[in-house]
Design a protein around this nucleic acid. Structure first.
Lengths: 116, 116
DNA sequence: AATATGTACCTTGTATAGCAAAGTATTAAA
DNA sequence: TTTAATACTTTGCTATACAAGGTACATATT
């Protein structure tokens, strides 16, 4: 069963996930399952059906690249890493994120009606 | 022409707008055009085609109510105000927003790979 | 050898949010 | 009467997340 709180979080996350992926990969390489674990550790739950298409989209945009690597316990893993173009996109997203945080702070703080 | 920065901001805003509307209306009544002005003042640009359906959605969910009021300069205005249910939803969204801000902070800070 | 389990990657169909563009209605000024 | 300004509304499109299911590989179990 999906609670209202789940839904609220899901809706609020739209578009921000792409930013999260770049944040993670800016720090280190990772493969899909490990990215999900890392997001889960940050209380940002994501399912596979969301993440895989997102990674493919970002790869096709030139923001990410990947390499295959054998695993000692299971099938090979697709390790993604951020590209130069990805870092540029990340910089834009950092700015956009800061703007949004500021905007919310402004709206929360300023309870003064606009005079028209 | 739409720049990449515009698109980045647009995508990152998905789902957060609903929260912004409740934040604004928690402070004071407002009608659509004045809400757009207020969002613009907070650097959160929104167009009519986005806002009107959103207000109608939130009204249908019982989060908002409205009343008509004559204007001295133009057609009558639909003044929206937040309901009790809307305030409860706002409280949930406050929590979800804080969670998301924390999650991003965690992802930005923690550049330690997950060990699997 | 055959089967089951765990890990990892991928695809399809659906719901929904935001946006561009166009439309309707009211008021007042030229 | 026409034009402009203000305000509300609708339609069609694109993109994002999700639920659900599928494929492939490696290892352990029978």
């Amino acid at each position: 069963m999906e609670t209202n709180a789940d839904n609220v979080r899901s809706q609020m996350r739209k578009g921000v996930l792409e930013y999260c992926i770049l944040c993670i990969l800016a720090g280190h390489e990772a493969y899909a399952s490990s990215i999900i674990e890392e997001l889960k550790a940050a209380n940002m739950i994501v399912v596979e059906g969301t993440l895989y298409p997102l990674l493919i989209r970002q790869k096709n945009q030139g923001l990410l690249s990947y390499r295959w690597e054998e695993s000692t316990q299971g099938p090979p893993r697709k390790y993604y890493c951020i590209t130069q173009k990805g870092r540029e996109q990340l910089a834009e997203m950092d700015a956009a994120w800061q703007d949004m945080v500021s905007a919310i702070a402004t709206l929360k703080g300023g309870n003064v009606p606009v005079q028209l």
